[in-house]
Amino acid sequence: MSPVLSIRGLNKSYKGGLVALKDINLEIEKGEIFALLGPNGAGKTTMINAVCGIVTPTSGDITAAGFDVRKDYREARSRIGLVPQEMHIDIFETVWAVTSYSRGLFGMPPNDAHVEKVLKDLSLWDKRKTKLMELSGGMKRRVLIAKALVHEPEILFLDEPTAGVDVELRRDMWGLVRQLRDKGCTIILTTHYIEEAEEMADRVGVISKGELIVVEEKKALMRKLGKKTVTFNVNEPLTAIPDGLKEWQLTLKDSGHALEYTFDTQAERTGVTSLIRKMGDLGIQFRDLDTKSSSLEDIFVSLVHTPKAEAQPKATAQKV
């Protein structure tokens, strides 16, 4: 099956010398939820804007739903919806006016019933006659989503969709995103909330300094790069790590009451068994132990602070 979005050799440089995107290669399958993670200024929004026609790439090829976004821009763009990161709205207009306008702008015939359905799904129906300036931040964010959905896109870009919204709305949006995917829509979202990507994404891409350093199935990524931490709560507090335990690179915690050992879950030998044995040999007894798997956030932080040469070999699933 051909990908619904294909990006090949995408570069973007600005006149001042800033290189925003470096040789981005990415393919996204139909019906996927893809999360693009990266720190501020990494190039997430630039990449989305290049696909949507808001930024002109320096070089590279992009196809959306099989159409070249430059040569067949009408076909490509009519299939894309974009929820921008910034709150770009016409505050003097009503919810109904701006939503209907967006449908027409994207070449769709008027369909009041559909506009009504979109507004109802986003709990905006009661506010349809309200001017945007009178809405809360969360409501404005919903309007942006309604505007992006009202022309029935195949690909939806959500650029930081839940930035600045409350927990309830965030959960609601996650539900909506899943519904959209179930109906065949492909979702590409950027987010600062790793929890969001962890909750929803099928695949995760990490972009740093304009380079896509990892693209991987979320579960596989967590499995591959995930680390586990085991914490031993010892009976007698320690003042220092005993010499006999140096090779495990333990950390002393809780004023010497806990020993923490972090290990790679993919390693052939985790070292846990030998550590416990050694602790027994040294007479270090523990009451209990806690284990904790690293979150996607931990993985993300480690990736963006790892040189590309180290991160790249782990990124085996980049479909190019």
Partner: peptide
């Protein structure tokens, strides 16, 4: 968005359009 789930179940709301 309390009605989001029920609305979505009743009919395809945002299914991509053929165009």
């Amino acid at each position: 968005m309390a009605d989001a789930t029920t609305a979505a179940q009743s009919a395809p709301a945002h299914a991509p359009a053929q165009r």
